[in-house]
Design a protein around this nucleic acid. Structure first.
Lengths: 210, 210
DNA sequence: TTGTGTGAAAGCTTTCACAGCA
DNA sequence: TGCTGTGAAAGCTTTCACACAA
């Protein structure tokens, strides 16, 4: 019954690609997806086969993008129109998200920012409301925010993550180089540059041929 | 002979943790590393066992941090003191790296920035030299830069990545939401927020218990 | 003929359990 | 006793090869 986690992650990415794609009508073949993603077509077909079919996703010329996206949506429980996110920590990194356009036509909406520095909160201009950090406990449930982008200074990372968990955050994208430990039920995705560089170096060293 | 790729990535991260760790003398046990990283101790021991031993890494009380770091270094070919990196695209995101402290005492050094906007290059203050983009072909080999942090606007991502590959870049950390296809021999690590959020959502949906 | 769908095989990684060492 | 080290088993994922459908 379960979709393997790697497959689920690929499907999630596939869906984002489908959303970006202008043409929502003409069918997309697994070969084309292979070209775009770099993943072999049989892997893609297999991944798609994990979605309990039912819907007629495929046509003789390939997959129907709209129905495919919908099926992934369903299977991964991306049921709601969008998931609400907040940025925590509005330094260079954090405030960069305030003007990041990528959230448009994605599954995620950035709908609040927090910083412990009240000054900064007042000075920054943004299209979304910014709050002092002590209001997290009030705002996060109120706005139904499930995900947090954590961009605070390293020494505040751990405690902030715990506070976020207490506020009901389910997933944290961790931009700090600090490794977080969070209560069960909360997921963390590490996106430190250093980790990324380390992973690259490791792959180059081991001689991967992805 | 080969170290499994997941193991290599964990080892790379382990090493970063070891570098951060103040105490470079007292031994560190696999149990302690489990606590810090969240990875089970047997996985850690196994990973370490992939490093062709030779060096006496371990003591009866645990691993010698310095020697362990050194062994990982050797096995992953992080032979050189540091790897040189550059930022490409100095918008909000890109310029955030100019003042990011995390590179200190890491394996990576940020040693140049590029932007196609000459104005921006001249106005920004930074501790590292900034260049207009057309100088990449000259500067990258000269400074022996192997890695690039790609933070240009989405519509320039693809072509910039190809240019970087031509300049001899071996690894690209891709901060744009665009999926890159690069020549063989070049590795890409995706760090778009959206991907991270997608992966989180996928994991939460599938019910992972990491 | 072109493309999907999928059981079964192959290939990796992780886990286990216990030997070995100080 | 406390910890590492490691073959062997278990568990996943990916790959393959071919059936099937339009």
């Amino acid at each position: 019954m379960g979709i393997p986690k790697p497959a689920a992650e690929r499907l999630a990415r596939l869906m984002q690609l489908l959303e970006q794609r202008k043409d929502r009508e003409s069918p997309v073949s697994s070969a084309e997806l292979e070209y775009i993603t770099g993943w072999p077509s049989h892997t893609i077909r297999k991944d798609i086969s994990f979605l309990a079919a039912g819907n007629d996703i495929s046509t003789p010329a390939g997959y129907n993008p709209a129905r495919l996206a919908q099926a992934i949506n369903g299977a991964l429980g991306f049921a709601r129109a969008t998931h609400n996110c907040c940025v925590v920590g509005l330094g260079r990194m954090g405030s960069a998200f305030l003007e990041y356009g990528g959230f448009h036509d994605s599954l995620f909406t950035l709908c609040a920012g927090f910083d412990s520095n009240v000054n900064r909160v007042e000075i920054l201009r943004a299209d979304i409301p910014l709050y002092p950090a002590f209001k997290m406990k009030e705002i996060i449930p109120r706005l139904d925010i499930t995900y947090a982008l954590l961009a605070v200074p390293p020494d505040q990372a751990r405690q902030t993550a715990l506070r976020l968990a207490e506020c009901g955050i389910r997933g944290i994208v961790n931009f700090t180089p600090v490794m977080l430990s969070v209560p069960p039920g909360v997921e963390v995705e590490q996106v430190s540059v250093l980790d990324a560089l380390g992973a690259l170096a490791a792959r180059l060293a081991v001689g991967d041929k992805t």
